[in-house]
Design a protein around this nucleic acid. Structure first.
Length: 455
RNA sequence: GGGGACGUAGUGUAGCCCGGUUAACACGUCUCCCUGUCACGGAGAAGAUCGUGGGUUCAAAUCCCAUCGUCCCCGCCA
């Protein structure tokens, strides 16, 4: 008999079927045992009543959570009073005729259905806790974010490329790089695909990549990861830097729309408030934002070169109240605070044609127009204290005709964290890396190594 | 790089301020009962040298010091 999916069982009422999956829960009433069986498509109730086969009866008593099993049985319409409306398959149940263990499970360290563990514990048991319905849903939603990003940009004529992870050095500074042995030389893990996406604008005009970015920043905050998924795009022949914000707005709105359209079930688990996609995202200059914050809170940060985390939250509240938007562009960050390739505003060179898109108080996207003029770029590399010789490879793209261009990057984990209201970005990374953890806690994994380093 | 908080059965917490006999509760686990549950229910049981080391004290989960671990905030950033 061929296996069918659990979600299909209501179509087989009165018929014998074979289904496979994991045992979610067991409710034993002695002479009758109910199992919830879970596969990739959903969950259904199985009913077992003792047979005149001792072996099967013993097995049914022994089976417990997370055993992988294969069962054959008849799909039965449930009596009206016993329909479970919470379950998609709640109008039917499968009466077990034969039962086969595919893999036993050890006793679970905690109840993964009603998970009530701390984040470190959840991460320690990641291979198991990912099976939790809610945790699993996070990553189905993240998949959709990435699919949507791909789809929108492809339709807009962007070419996807694979960005390298091993790089010679970073254009944005050296402090936060992971260094690695590369034969007899040193190399680094890419902190961003910036260099490569800019080079490829000279080839494909419009490019994007979904890639891992690595930052060795000693940060233990709820919004930082040492390895994160960067959704990067870059486009040439722009008329204005505002073209970039138009693209971002389209991409972002499609992401939210696609989540609602294609992942309604997973979204329902979190029931987040979705941004109003009918309004356009306000665009305000950083200095204006600081003035608004001063007026609203009395906090005077108007001399600061950047918004404080508290300010970012406040300006998002402002955007929601005044413009009905959950997202807001903050533009014109000071030239000194941005990387060397950022395009200065010709009307006011102290500030750049760059922007952050804030969502519920956190930076979601950073971007801006880039310097495409070869000589200006070389000058800036020097001004930022670097040697243009180290950038010769990258500079070729500009030496041989680079049109006006710009781009942006999202953190995939941050989108999900902000949308679902997760407390920590590590909940939005399927296998998060932070200062203290690569899968397992490094303190446990490499106890001896750390000690020897200290001595 | 700077600052703050926390560490008690498998898991999540209470107890600590104000030291005192068997360290409490919930979930999970085990045994028994249960043919309509869906986070099933009922009865019972096991499970913790209170992170580690030292100090104060007649007496330490509780007070002090050190150490290890965990989390959060700032800087920085997506």
């Amino acid at each position: 008999m061929e296996r069918i999916l659990i979600s299909e069982t209501p179509k087989f009422i009165g018929q014998k079927v074979k289904i496979c999956g994991w045992i979610d829960t067991v409710r034993s009433h002695g002479k009758i045992i109910f199992f919830d069986l879970r596969d990739r498509s959903g969950t259904a109730q199985l009913v077992f009543v003792p047979k005149n086969n001792e072996e099967t009866n013993d097995l049914a008593k022994k089976i417990s959570s997370e055993w992988a099993v294969e069962i054959e049985g008849e799909v039965k319409q449930r009596p009206e009073k016993m329909v479970n409306e919470k379950l998609a398959t709640g109008q039917v149940e499968i009466s077990i005729e034969s039962l086969k263990t595919l893999a036993e499970s050890e006793v679970l360290p905690f109840d993964i259905k009603d998970l009530n563990a701390s984040l470190p514990t959840i991460l320690d048991y990641r291979p198991l806790t990912l099976r939790n319905e809610k945790i699993k849903a996070v990553f189905k939603l993240q998949e959709e974010v990435i699919n949507s990003f791909r789809k929108t940009l492809s339709e807009m004529g962007f070419t996807e490329f694979q960005s390298p992870s091993i790089v010679p050095l970073a254009p944005e500074g050296g402090a936060e790089l992971f260094r690695l042995d590369y034969f007899e030389y040193s190399a680094y893990l890419a902190q961003s695909p910036q260099v490569y996406k800019q080079i490829l604008v000279g080839v494909f005009e419009r490019v994007f990549t979904v890639t891992q970015a690595y930052r060795a920043e000693p940060s233990m905050t709820t919004r930082h990861l040492c390895e994160f998924t960067s959704l990067d795009a870059e486009m040439g022949f722009i008329d204005s830097w505002e073209d970039l914000m138009d693209v971002i707005e389209a991409v972002t709105k499609n992401i939210f729309a696609d989540l609602q359209k294609n992942r309604a079930e997973e979204l329902k688990i979190f029931n987040p408030s979705m941004p109003d996609l009918g309004v356009s995202f306000p665009r305000i200059k950083m200095r204006e934002a600081q003035k608004i914050i001063l007026e609203r809170t009395g906090r005077d940060n108007t001399k600061e070169p950047d918004l404080q985390p508290e300010d970012e939250k406040e300006i998002c509240r402002y955007a929601k109240e005044k413009h009905g938007s959950d997202l807001i562009f903050v533009t014109h960050y000071p030239t000194k605070k941005r990387p060397f390739y950022t395009f200065a505003d010709p009307k006011d060179p102290e500030y750049t044609l760059s922007f952050d898109l804030l969502y519920n108080g956190v930076e979601l996207i950073s971007g801006g127009q880039r310097i495409n003029d070869y000589n200006k770029l070389v000058d800036n590399i020097k001004k930022w204290g670097n040697d243009p010789k180290n950038f010769e490879y990258y500079l070729q793209a500009f030496k041989y005709g680079m049109p006006p261009e710009g781009g942006f990057a999202f953190g995939a984990e941050r989108i999900i964290k902000q949308l679902l209201g997760l407390e920590n970005v590590r909940e939005a990374a399927i296998f998060p890396r932070d200062m203290e953890r690569i899968d397992q806690r490094l303190s446990v994994l490499q106890e001896d190594k750390k000690k020897s380093k200290k001595e």
